[in-house]
Design a protein around this nucleic acid. Structure first.
Lengths: 140, 140
DNA sequence: CTCGCTTACGGACACCGTAAACATA
DNA sequence: TATGTTTACGGTGTCCGTAAGCGAG
């Protein structure tokens, strides 16, 4: 059991597709397929129903364990966050509008790419694309 | 960040020694040293105060993150446990005397090795040595 | 055909053990 | 000396990408 496997599982649960899941966690379909196969093998259970049409759904077992997986990954985030705080770096997950000083003018933010470009002028950078108006930021 | 690194950290916090920590998680001193060094490097923080006498103590940062680490590992245990339940396997952590039917006679249990040998005759096996009369068991 | 997942193959690298070096008492 | 941690080196195995295979539409 490793973090890639668990991240793959939640991404699959969220997207319902290996292709989409791979995109959200910056891996290939193949890697996600590998990850889930090995996780299922290791745990000795089937976690996903494969629907041959790109649509996957959690099995009963999958639904049982996924809250634990999300909680585990949340703890991992907390650990990294504590480490960043200890380093004196102010970074983490922000939501548009929550920290005005590092948010570029709306006119320059019609796309994530534009947002990234503008953000770099303020000392920030996008680590990973997010959903629904949120980005993960790192400020060196 | 991986599970070995996190297990090493909690073992170090519990034992205060690389040697003892390595013993409790079935690794060598060297592996534990590697694990913690890489974890500290990855997080960019120092987690342990080295006292050169075999006694180590957590730094302030270490104390901040260790509850998250323990919680994370607990979630991992929950995941494995859910998987075992889904498999229909009755296994987990037991304590000597709690399940009489799979405990060999005391006369045959002067050592962990003898316990293991006897236990195999009853369909059990020792996955990892434990402390204070407890073992982790798997029953196929 | 296209689309999507799986499988085969291989490269890069992470993990961990042995053994030596180093530090403390 | 004895005890305990770190470091150097190397083997084994994991992870993941490319590319081929396969099933469904």
């Amino acid at each position: 059991m490793n973090f890639s496997q668990l991240q793959s599982l939640v991404a699959l649960a969220d997207t319902g597709s290996f292709t989409e899941a791979a995109y959200t966690i910056n891996l290939t379909q193949s890697a996600v397929s590998h990850a889930l196969a090995s996780l299922e093998s290791e745990l000795g259970v089937t976690l996903l129903e494969r629907n041959r049409k790109g649509v996957v759904s959690l099995t009963a077992t999958g639904q049982k364990i996924i809250p634990h997986v999300r909680a585990l990954l949340a703890q991992a985030e907390s650990i990294e966050q504590e480490a960043r705080v200890a380093q004196g770096k102010a970074s983490g997950k922000v939501r548009l509008g929550s920290i005005n000083s590092i948010i570029p003018p709306r006119s320059a933010c019609q796309s994530t790419d534009q947002f990234s470009t503008e953000l770099s002028r303020h000392g920030g950078s996008i680590v990973r694309g997010g959903h629904a108006g949120s980005w993960r930021l790192d400020r060196g």
